[in-house]
Amino acid sequence: MANSNQIPHGKSTGISPKIILAIVAVVLVAAFAGISLLTGGNAKDSDDYAGMGSRTQSSQSADSGSSASSSEAPDVTLNLVDGSQRQLSDSRGHVVILSFWATWCPYCIEEMPDIQQITKDYEGVEAILVNCGEDAATVEDFMAENPYDFTWVLDEDYAVQSAYPTSGIPYTLVIDAEGNVVKAFSGSKASGMYNDFAAAVEEAMK
């Protein structure tokens, strides 16, 4: 065990930190290029909306595993901010953008101008914004500051959200006039969602 080459304490030994820094930089660049190649151009359609997985197995069983190009949106009771109630199925006959959001979710709020623009650019599209878990006062404060022309829905006990295969927000679905989900979007893009929403709405209107 006796070493001939004793190294004094406190000295950095062997490999130079610069080499490690270079290795790390190379990994960073190579991985970035590799992952971009793998995921980029990945515009493949996710037709079933088995979003981020659901805790409610029953609701998921209806549509999970289906490779059909669209599936029926679970019907739910919507509690509107104004106190009234209605069914989601009451919206059949026109295209619906159903979006789950919360006031603490900046990426949800960023989608709202795009959703508003869609309802202006495509006639007959209704935007239903389901708030996740917050009380009426919080949502009303938000509405006062952000006067969008949406159907605002409260979902304090997550009853609506539980019916859909999501647990993360933003989660936005485009539903056609027959009540079928054309496309579901989990999360949002930094570059904005208008084009994605527009494409889905056009598909729904076909």
């Binding site: 995921t39 990945n42 515009a43 493949k44 359609d45 996710s46 079933d48 909306y49 088995a50 979003g51 981020m52 997985g53 579901a184 979007f185 989990s186 999360g187 949002s188 893009k189």
Partner: peptide, 8 residues
């Protein structure tokens, strides 16, 4: 785990 996230 999520195809819909993969497209995003």
């Amino acid at each position: 785990a999520s195809p819909s996230l993969q497209s995003m």
